[in-house]
Design a protein around this nucleic acid. Structure first.
Lengths: 130, 130
DNA sequence: CTTGACCTTCCAGTCACTGGAATCCCTATA
DNA sequence: TATAGGGATTCCAGTGACTGGAAGGTCAAG
């Protein structure tokens, strides 16, 4: 299987797959012509990576998850710890974004949005508590 | 006012202020010794930028907001449009993150987190619909 | 005169790709 | 057999918004 086919099947751009090889996430063998030759195992790993990335896991987490996945002697606690940490980070991000959204939403609501220059958004940004 | 003081008062690292000068957001004059010499106007701008960035506005949005802030002939509609776009992006991000959080949260709940290798998190990542 | 805190510039690294250039390989058709 | 195309390869550079660090200049206090 060449990179184009495996990319289509794993749902990842070919560029990304080359990048994953660069950083050592996968190690596909090469054909005599120098093309990467992907088997089902490689494809499976790439699909795994695509799903982990879609859940927002960082690359280094993906590396660890992949390692654990291939380690028969893993404990589910290790996997769970990675996921829990990631969950915490996501919750924090959501909280931060929600605060931004609330503030911004109030400001946008308060702004007339017409041709006059007066604007509570700018007023809020420029209020000067220094 | 040197960069250290203005940094403390605006709540931005000195590095960031130098970076903002690099990309043309501010243009503080220089003392004879080559030090940046900040006045109240510069400080005000930096505080503005710090607040805009804290609301998650991108640098290019900040540049536009600053320009509008200084433009007496602005219309509040322009400002509102920028904020509304940003709000939309934030809402999208929140929605994406919430979807991740829900999925992850289910998986973490389903995982025993003990020393056994069986793990629904890995199972979900490796299920193979290709 | 020295010390230490501050300032300067410049370069490299972050994260996870992504775009593009230059070149090579394979297959099919005229 | 020539060629055209589509796909593969590598390598370099850029993204956003900083951040760390090195190497060196400046200033005020003791």
């Amino acid at each position: 299987m060449n990179i184009g086919e495996v990319a289509a099947r794993a749902g990842l751009p070919a560029k990304t797959i080359r990048y994953y090889e660069d950083i050592g996430l996968i190690k596909p063998p090469r054909d005599t012509n120098g093309y990467r030759a992907f088997g089902e195992v490689e494809l499976h790993k790439l699909a795994f990576l695509a799903r982990a990335r879609a859940l927002g896991f960082r690359i280094e987490d993906c590396r660890d998850l992949l390692r654990l996945y291939e380690d028969e002697a893993r404990s589910s606690a290790e996997v769970r710890a990675i996921a829990q940490q990631h969950l915490d980070r996501i919750a924090k991000k959501i909280a931060d974004l929600e605060e931004m959204r609330n503030t911004l939403s109030d400001l946008v609501d308060a702004c007339a949005g017409d041709q006059r220059p007066d604007c509570p958004i700018l007023a809020s940004l420029s209020k000067y508590p220094v």
